Amino acid sequence: MTQNPNLAALSEAGVSVWLDDLSRTLISSGGLQEQIDTRSIVGVTTNPVIFQNAISSGGGAYADQIAELAKSGADVDATITALTTDDVRNACDVFAPIFEATDGLDGRVSIEVDPRLANKTAETVEQAAELWKLVDRPNVLIKIPATAAGVPAIADVIAQGISVNVTLIFSVERYREVMDAYLDGLDRALRNGHDAGKIASVASFFVSRVDSEIDNRLNAIGTPEALELRGKAGLANARLAYAAYQEVFETETRFPDLQAHGALPQRPLWASTGTKNADYPDTLYVSELVAPNTVNTVPGKTLEAYADHGWVNTESIVGLEGSSREVFAALRGVGVDLDDVFAVLETEGVEKFEQAWDELLTATSQQLDAAR
């Protein structure tokens, strides 16, 4: 099999392409391996919505295991934990060769803590450690949301030597807190005797949702100046995030001390990169977010669109901090409250994952009842 040239070019430009999807059927059918062989996929992310779709509509893929769990008396939470950790473990095994070939940079598979714990620090830390032990693979990443309660949990989990994918980041201000938490966690991990080179982390910065929320507000304002700014906020926000990443990991003095002990930088990860507005190019948040040491988690539909007609713009991020700040100044100038935007997006992000988890609980409970 040969790699798609568009996606191969994206990888060569320094972007690690991770698939934003996972299911038992995708693994068992060989579809995941095919994505690796033909689409330059070097990792996978999951979230409650993905698992809700996979398990609720998975047909017979999960039936035998659910029947066994029902027979053993497992409750719905234990069942979901078993189903999801098995899928992630098996996916980790598929990606093991990439993990080894890249010295742990890629070949990563993410699994998220229960979204109902998003505002509970201690419980998040406890479940992150539990998931780490259950999956029992060095290439797993435990996803923790970047809520006010999640930030200290990130530091605590990193301090235990556990690799973390920080999710639901919307603002650069919160992103800076996340990077500080990562560095604090590394400091503590070293003092706890962990090998810093074995601890990985990515920071998942959501993109398209920013445009969706801000575009709605710009449409409501309705002035020519406001309407002219539609579709510019998401990319500007990501570019400012990358500038913050460069500042912390390439310019400031704190990280080199940790790097001397083998520590890895916490790479920016572009999430929510499927275009939600049909007026925008369907590969916009992939083609226009190209920079070294980044990850892009791509939904299947967007992946195929990029394979067909995506382009690589190597001048899409680096050096655009100034123009991105001008976009934000213009947004404030027409009346967009950016602090409120980011607060709303974080709250809605948690709520969407909680809703998907509740739906998964209901569907799995029904399957358990039927199996009994």
Rank of each mutant, 00 (worst) to 15 (best):
M1E: 08
N6V: 07
A8E: 14
S11T: 15
G14C: 13
R24F: 02
S28M: 03
S28E: 11
G31P: 11
L32I: 11
D37W: 05
T46Q: 01
I50M: 07
A70D: 05
G73A: 01
I80E: 04
I80H: 07
D86H: 05
D86E: 05
V94G: 04
A101R: 15
T102Y: 10
G104Q: 11
G104L: 07
D106A: 09
G107S: 13
S110V: 00
S110M: 01
E112R: 11
V113W: 01
R116V: 11
A118D: 14
T121I: 08
V125A: 08
E130N: 01
K133S: 02
K143M: 00
I144M: 00
D156E: 06
A159C: 01
A159D: 04
L183Q: 10
G193A: 04
A196C: 13
I199F: 03
A200Q: 10
S204A: 06
F205N: 06
L218T: 05
I221Q: 07
K232P: 12
A236N: 03
A238W: 03
L240T: 04
E247L: 03
F249S: 07
E250Q: 08
F255E: 06
F255R: 09
P256Y: 14
L258Q: 12
Q266I: 11
K276V: 07
T283N: 14
V290I: 11
P292S: 03
V298D: 15
G300A: 11
T302V: 14
L303A: 15
L303M: 13
E304H: 14
A307C: 14
D308A: 14
H309G: 15
N313W: 12
S316R: 12
I317K: 09
E326Y: 07
E326D: 05
L331C: 09
G333A: 09
G335S: 10
D339P: 00
F342D: 00
A343R: 08
K352I: 03
E354V: 08
D358P: 02
S365V: 10
